[in-house]
C-alpha cells in the first residue's frame, strides 16, 4: 500500500482526490533479497561513544535491535545522547566501539547500499538550501539517492503529492514557513522509500495535518516490513510505539 492510499484509507474526509499509482520499488530490492534470514532491519550492538576529554561515555555499550514492521521510541533528557545514537545508526558518525548493521550489513562493508536503506530526519530546521525551490530539493535528493532514471520523476511527484507540497513546489525554501519546511524535510527523508527511518524530534513545527502526513508515511514504511526509530525527550502520547526505551547515563533502559 502506498502512502497516499494509506492517507485515503485513514482519512475519511480527505480534502483532495488522490489518484492511484503503481507502487514504487523499495529502496534497494537487491539488498532486500540479500538479507540475512535472521538479521534485524537495524541492530546496534555494544555501541559506545565517548566525546574527547569526557570522563564518561555518552553511549555506553548500547544494544538495541529493531524488528520488521515496528516503531521504536527512545526518550531521555536533553543532551543524554539520543541524537548521537541516531547519527551513529544513520552512518553519519562512527562509534568508538560496537557494531551497527542494517539487515546484517554495516556501512563499512557497503556504504552505498547502507545509505540506500537508511534515512535520517535530523532535528531542527537545517539541511535545506535557502534559495532552492521545494521541487529543486526533491529532485536533488532523488538524484543523490541514486534512484534509477525511470523512478526519478515518479519519486519526486509522489513526494510532492504525499506530503502536500503541490502549492509550494515552485517556491524557494526561504519563502516558506517553518512547518512547510518540516514537511519538505520529511518528504526528502521518505522520498527514496528507505527501509529504516530514523526520526529526531520529527513533530517540530508540524501542525495537525503535518503530523497526520508523518503518521501515514511511517505506516507505509511499517507496511513494507521496514522499521522506524523515533527519538524525542518526551513520548508522544498520540503515537503508538511497539517498543519504548529511555537513554540514561549512556545506557538504554525500558520505559
Amino acid at each position: 500500500m502506498t502512502l497516499t492510499e494509506l492517507r485515503s484509507a485513514t482519512t475519511p474526509a480527505a480534502p483532495r482526490a488522490l489518484p492511484a499509482r503503481a507502487p514504487a520499488p523499495p529502496a534497494d530490492q537487491a539488498a532486500r533479497q540479500r538479507r540475512e534470514p535472521r538479521a534485524a532491519p537495524l541492530s546496534l550492538r555494544c555501541v559506545t561513544k565517548r566525546w574527547r576529554g569526557a570522563r564518561v561515555a555518552v553511549l555506553d555499550r548500547v544494544t538495541v535491535a529493531l524488528q520488521p514492521g515496528t516503531m521504536t521510541w527512545i526518550g531521555g533528557r536533553n543532551g543524554v545522547g539520543k541524537t548521537t545514537l541516531l547519527r551513529i545508526a544513520a552512518g553519519l558518525i562512527e562509534p568508538d566501539t560496537g557494531e551497527v548493521e542494517v539487515w546484517g550489513e554495516s556501512a563499512r562493508e557497503n556504504r552505498v547500499r547502507y545509505q540506500r536503506l537508511v534515512s535520517l530526519l535530523a532535528a531542527g530546521d537545517r539541511g535545506l538550501y535557502a534559495r532552492l525551490s521545494v521541487r529543486g530539493h526533491l529532485d536533488f535528493c532523488a538524484r543523490i539517492a541514486m534512484l534509477p532514471r525511470s523512478e526519478l520523476q515518479r519519486a519526486v511527484a509522489r513526494a510532492i503529492e504525499d506530503f502536500g507540497l503541490e502549492e509550494l513546489a515552485g517556491r524557494r525554501v526561504d519563502r516558506i514557513s517553518m512547518g512547510q519546511r518540516q514537511r519538505l524535510r520529511m518528504a526528502m527523508t521518505f522520498l527514496a522509500r528507505p527501509e529504516i527511518v530514523l526520526l529526531d524530534e520529527p513533530l517540530t513545527s508540524l501542525d495537525a495535518d503535518g503530523a497526520e502526513i508523518l503518521r501515514c508515511a511511517i505506516a507505509e514504511v511499517l507496511a513494507r516490513e521496514g522499521a522506524v526509530l523515533w527519538c524525542s525527550p518526551e513520548r508522544e502520547l498520540r503515537v503508538r510505539f511497539d517498543a519504548r526505551f529511555a537513554l540514561e547515563h549512556g545506557r538504554l533502559v525500558g520505559a
Binding site: 545509505q115 539541511g127 543523490i144
Partner: peptide, 14 residues
C-alpha cells in the same frame, strides 16, 4: 553551516 553536508554524507552519492 546549513547542515546540508550531513545530507550529502548520508546519501548514496556520498
Amino acid at each position: 553551516v546549513a547542515g546540508t553536508l550531513e545530507r550529502l554524507v548520508l546519501s548514496p552519492f556520498g
